[in-house]
Simulated assay, not measured.
Amino acid sequence: MLCISLVGCQYFNQHENGNPQDQLDEFEHTTYEQERDLPDKQPQLEGGSERDVRKPHPVSNNILQKEFPNALFLNGSPSTNQVALTFDDGPDIRFTPQVLDVLAKHDVKATFFLIGARAKEHNEITKRIHDEGHVIGNHTYWHPNLPKEGLGRLHWELTQTEQVIEDITGIKPRLFRSPYGALNEEMIKMLEEKGNTVIGWNVDSLDWKQPGEDVVADNVLSNVGFGSIILMHDGGDWTMDLSGTAQALDKIITKLKNDGTEFVTVPELVGVPEAK
Rank of each mutant, 00 (worst) to 15 (best):
R128V: 02
E121Y: 07
H130R: 04
I115E: 12
M240D: 12
T96A: 04
V203W: 03
V272I: 10
F68W: 13
T126D: 05
N17Q: 13
R51Y: 07
A119W: 05
L2H: 08
N81V: 06
Q44W: 12
A110S: 10
F112Y: 13
V270G: 03
V266D: 09
D22K: 09
V266K: 06
G236T: 01
N219C: 09
Y141Q: 03
D107K: 07
D52E: 15
N258C: 07
L151S: 05
K257W: 01
E16K: 13
C9F: 06
R153A: 13
A182G: 11
D204I: 01
T169Q: 08
P173H: 07
V216F: 03
F95R: 07
K209D: 15
S5G: 02
L100D: 11
L151Q: 09
V135W: 00
V215T: 13
F95C: 08
H155T: 08
A110I: 03
G76S: 04
N17S: 13
G133V: 03
T265W: 02
L183Y: 02
Y32Q: 10
Y141I: 01
A110Q: 04
F68L: 15
K189N: 11
A71P: 04
T80P: 01
L158N: 11
R118D: 10
S178V: 03
G152H: 10
E124T: 03
F87N: 00
V135I: 03
K194A: 12
V272S: 07
A246I: 01
I63N: 11
L103H: 00
G137N: 07
L191I: 08
L231K: 10
K257Q: 08
L151I: 03
E186L: 05
L85G: 09
L100P: 10
V108R: 05
Q42M: 14
D107V: 01
A248N: 00
D241Y: 01
T261H: 12
K189H: 06
P20N: 09
I188S: 11
A182V: 11
H233T: 08
E185W: 02
G170Y: 11
F95T: 10
E46R: 13
H139E: 02
R177K: 12
Q160S: 12
L114H: 09
T159P: 04
L100K: 09
V99M: 01
S5K: 00
D89Q: 05
L249A: 00
D52R: 11
I93T: 01
N62T: 10
A246C: 07
L231F: 09
F226N: 15
V215W: 04
P69N: 12
Q210V: 12
T140A: 13
N138Q: 02
G48Q: 14
P144W: 05
M240P: 02
G76Q: 03
L85C: 08
L114G: 11
F87S: 00
G195M: 01
E185G: 03
D234C: 13
E33S: 14
P43A: 07
E50T: 14
W208Y: 15
E166K: 15
Q34N: 11
Q247M: 01
N81G: 05
A119H: 04
G90C: 01
G150W: 06
K172V: 10
G212V: 09
G8Q: 06
T96L: 04
N145W: 09
D234E: 14
M190E: 12
G225E: 12
D37I: 12
K257P: 01
